[in-house]
Design a protein around this nucleic acid. Structure first.
Lengths: 236, 236
DNA sequence: CAGTGGTCTAGACCACCGA
DNA sequence: CGGTGGTCTAGACCACTGG
């Protein structure tokens, strides 16, 4: 089927990975040393080193200098959760994305908001509220506060054409982001716009992005629980 | 502060990363070629290659053979969501974990369950229901179905001492796992055991693990929305 | 075609671990 | 101490891109 010859380091990786996934080597077992694998495959040590190093990065093995390499404890199944721009995500599903702009304003930060954005109380802050549709069905209610220092012209852009996420990533180089995912009931406003009952649980993602010394943006993204879920897959 | 000298490839990485995070190089801009960086830092090309290759793996740059390296579009903020054993997670928070076993049984799979576990209808399946406590407070309601082919002695273990997640990872080498996170209202049973109202939204994680040709396990993990959230952080 | 990145080698020196 | 992995070099050949 696959006529192309795999690179040597991929062959070494595949061999070690197969021993692990097929159960021949279990957690804690020693993996052959680099010199052993080097002889077994007839390649240079740099090549073996690259193979095993990548497996270590992937978390399949643990390496200790001076001691050796062992099969890792796989107790931490970790997976990549994509935190993405809603626009790209909907397009990738082959659906149509549209945005309704509910609020675009500047305001003065109260104490709580100022603390979150690391500004002083009373500082000027941009505030937008958007409703995102997937094929005409409301899918995300987005309430966002933006630090003017990170994007001075944020209020002037056409939010029906560019999502705040995309614009902010273009404006302010991202240095850090954190998020949390919770289950909540929607507020009366959120329920009305999302066209759901107030008793219907929602997934709420809160996202904070940092650009250099500034907190660039805080977003609260509300998804109807019946129409949306986060998912992921982990292989190997 | 940091008296140790960084490896050469880390210095190259740090340099490129700084240009990007400080905004000197924006999305789509060309990154100097390997030979240029090689001369700039006075190191071999293998060393530069390693540095830039790792940045590509981290998603900061995109490399195209024959063409060059450019700063990546950072539109996909992706972060690692740790899907972990509840036991380890609670211990890491410095709290005490305990388990109450509600159900341990074998049963015959109905059509829906058989399909999910890739078994034939009527096949024998293990079923456990557990309640996990963090410092005595119920934090997770775990309803799990296990394929006997992956763990024949699953029903015999002491589930107050070893979580199913841990046991299964030790028994059956993991080859694949997928999960989804939703917001739901709890069933009457779940609400009673979690000591919450039926109107309180919950985070529900559904996990499926695959070991070789078998689907090893399907778990439904229900967390009270007010007591639990998933979170993560992304840097660089 | 020249320039790029992808891979590979045969050495080398070092820091570290365990006996 | 010998064996391990971490790093690095100075070459090399290749596949691919672009003009």
């Amino acid at each position: 089927m696959n006529a192309v010859r795999l690179p040597a380091y991929e062959q070494v990786k595949a061999f070690v990975k197969a021993q692990i996934t097929q159960g021949a080597w279990r957690s804690g077992d020693a993996v052959p040393s680099e010199s052993a694998l080097q002889q077994q495959f007839g390649v240079s040590r740099m090549t073996v080193n690259r193979a095993v190093k990548e497996l270590a990065v992937e978390g399949l093995v643990t390496r200790v200098r001076g001691s050796g390499t062992v099969v890792a404890q796989l107790h931490r199944i970790s997976s990549t959760l994509a935190v993405r721009d809603i626009h790209d995500e909907i397009l990738e599903r082959g659906h149509e994305h549209s945005t309704r702009v509910l609020t675009v304003e500047g305001l003065r930060a109260d104490a709580a908001l100022a603390r979150q954005l690391k500004l002083r109380a009373g500082a000027r802050v941009f505030h937008t509220v958007l409703l995102h549709f997937e094929d005409g069905v409301p899918i995300q209610f987005e309430d966002r506060h933006v630090n003017p220092a990170a994007a001075p012209h944020f209020l002037e852009i056409d939010l029906t054409q560019t999502t705040p996420t995309r614009y902010l990533l273009e404006q302010a180089p991202l240095t850090e982001a954190s998020y949390s995912i919770e289950a909540c009931l929607p507020s009366a406003t959120e329920a009305r716009y999302l066209e759901i009952k107030r008793s219907e649980p929602c997934l709420v993602m809160t996202r904070r992005t940092v650009s250099g010394v500034h907190v660039a943006s805080m977003g609260r993204l509300v998804y109807p629980g019946l129409r949306y879920s986060f998912g992921g897959k982990f292989q190997l």
